[in-house]
Write a protein that binds this DNA or RNA. Sequence first.
RNA 1: GGAGGGAUGACAGAGCGGCCGAAUGUACCGGUCUUGAAAACCGGCGUGGGCUUGCCCACCGUGGGUUCAAAUCCCACUCCCUCCGCCA
Length: 431
Amino acid sequence: MIDLVQLRREPDVVRAALARRGVSSVSVDEVIGLDNEHRLLLQESERLRAEVKELSRQVGEARRQNDTVTAESLSTASRAVGDQEQVAREATEAVALRLREHLLMLPNLPDERVPDGADESDNVEVRRWWPGMDDGAPFPEFAGYQRVPHWETGVALGILDMESGAKLSGSMFALYRGGGSRLLRALSMLSLDHHVQGYEEIRPPTLALTETMMSTGHLPKSADDMYAIERDGLWAIPTGEVPLTSLRRGEILSEAELPMKLTAQTNCFRREAGAAGKDTRGLLRLHEFEKVELFAYCTPEQADEIHADILGRAEGLLRELGLAYRVLDLCTGDLGTASAYTVDLEVYSPGVDKWLEVSSVSWFRDFQARRANVRYRKSDGSIALVHTLNGSILGWARVWAALVETYRQADGTVRLPAALDPYFGGEAVLR
RNA sequence: GGAGGGAUGACAGAGCGGCCGAAUGUACCGGUCUUGAAAACCGGCGUGGGCUUGCCCACCGUGGGUUCAAAUCCCACUCCCUCCGCCA
């Protein structure tokens, strides 16, 4: 949620920033209007409330002096004011609710670094990396045997069974087998093993309360993309970011605790409501996948460094796996609701000849912290909202696809990168 | 799932209709003392909101209710603890 105080003080700045994301000034003005209306009503109901309190205090005083007559007449007067107060309060609350609803629908202000653009085609490529690039090698020419989609290799080697996944849970649910399953486990281990030194490992629940989903900005806006378990009021999390961001919800942290860096592997659930039929073959787009997330609560001053750290770790992992990738600055049109600045990593997967998004590294400024009410006490005793950041290291389904395609050999087997050998008890080969 | 007990400020813990936003202790911050530190003593010390910046309002798990007045009484719910049941 954006800062209402900032909206009051510099409405033009907010209007201009949100206009870059396609938010009309009308919806910003609606919020300003509701805020003004709310404050007027609030003043009136608080005034009446103060009056009731004062009269009630006088009733108590009269009673103590056994002045029943005065007490009775003051009670009657207080009751009358109380009736007015109730009307005023209900009106105030109704406007407060509308104000909150509107405010929750406003996205975060994009950072200056974010390029303007309408949709993902306007994202700006920052750099590319591929194995051997540092020694001057050109972007790889992939051989014919690498130009085989992972779902074909998956069936041929018995490591991926999309049909069984569909049989069990419907389309866009994957079932990995044998070495394919082990590969998934190996990737989680590799990633977590590399990052537990700097980031505390967490195993959060994967079902979350509405409140928890609100904090990250996934609700109310993206309800259609979430799986809901209505009977119990729970939602399946779309990313580990959800529980991690709410871990300290409502708390005041001490500055010494910051940055508080966490990592978690979770299953992620997405309905992909608007994505029917688009890039949905094999592992390209799933309703459920696994992902390791890096997350941090920090001070505004620490945010840049942490963003760089998370991005560096994600890139480091891709390099270690020897996958070609590119780094994109998301444009205003593709930026997530809560984010102020996001960098995406996409791996090149030769079998499907596509760049696949495997990581998003985002800085939310205090947008999520304001919703989640996570603050910290500075050394001077004052209190401020924390900043939150997160990034994936990485989304495994697509990395799995890229690995199986990139490392497919002429004989149809897959020799995985040596970094995975320890997790295969020897040479990591799928055959 | 059943039966009991509980939820109050950073923590512990009083209050159980009327100057209670809340005693007290600890922690924390400032000061005195000290070569320095500790101890002792003195002072300060919740969060958010509104406006006429001095005042007002809200918050004692959450949501309702009773009352002139609710941390305090009533109802529902949530969570935690103990015991029983079930269970990977």
